[in-house]
């Protein structure tokens, strides 16, 4: 039992920090750059991503282990996983709008952007590639989403400060954002070797 908990703990630390999906694996950069202009936006995006990521990895894990592998249809994986995510996003949007209008107001506008968020597709692929159990997949996807949100909020904080800073003309806008990301990535390198 204790080894199982230890494995879960390892998954959490490595997925959220050591192999941070943005700063160490370069996945999910579009929303990272696009949605990090303010801290409030980035938290909304983080919530939406967490929600869809966990749902998507559960659904794809079940489909993969009970339908695709037994039938030998592994080669249809890319198409089916992305369609599952797209459908799920639509479904979540409709359900939230009807039943939880408050939550919808908080993260609704971010949902359509998520279909083409590579972080979610990557997590569903990696979840089945690593051969995790269902519980491990759930923990894994929550941790990845946590790492995603942390990186997003950190950058949003820096960008809010940058707006007041004097930046050379050609470095204004995206270039300076990438320089800030570079420094963040250096900081996250410090986590490497934490999990053995």
């Amino acid at each position: 039992m204790s080894t199982e908990i230890l494995t879960l703990f390892k998954i959490i630390v490595s997925a959220a920090f050591v192999d941070n999906i943005i700063l160490a694996r370069y996945i999910g950069l579009c929303p990272y750059i696009g949605m990090s202009s303010s801290v409030a936006n980035s938290i909304g995006m983080g919530m939406a991503v967490t929600f869809v990521m966990v749902l998507a990895s559960i659904v794809t894990w079940v489909l993969w282990n009970f339908i695709f592998v037994p039938l030998g249809l592994e080669y249809l994986r890319i198409m089916v996983f992305i369609l599952v995510i797209a459908t799920l996003v639509q479904l979540v949007e409709i359900l939230l709008k009807k039943n939880v209008p408050n939550l919808y107001r908080a993260m609704g506008i971010y949902l359509p952007l998520i279909t083409t968020n590579c972080a979610i597709l990557a997590v569903t692929f990696l979840g089945v590639d690593y051969g995790y159990t269902l519980l491990q997949v759930v923990v894994y996807s929550i941790s990845v989403a946590l790492g995603f949100t942390v990186a997003l909020v950190l950058l949003a904080g820096i960008r809010e400060r940058l707006r007041l800073a004097r930046v050379p003309q050609f470095w204004q806008g995206y270039p300076i954002v990438f320089v800030a990301t570079c420094l963040l990535a250096i900081a996250f390198l410090g986590f490497k070797g934490l999990v053995k």
Binding site: L23, A24, Y26, F170, W171, G173, Y174, P175, I176, V177, F178, V179, T181, C182, L183, A185, I186, F188, L189
Partner: peptide, 22 residues
């Protein structure tokens, strides 16, 4: 080779492109 270098390089490339287009 590590992630920070990649981020820095893309920042420099965008700044260079902005500069040359100007």
């Amino acid at each position: 080779i590590l992630p920070p270098g990649a981020f820095l390089l893309i920042g420099i490339s965008i700044a260079l492109l902005n500069w040359s287009l100007k």
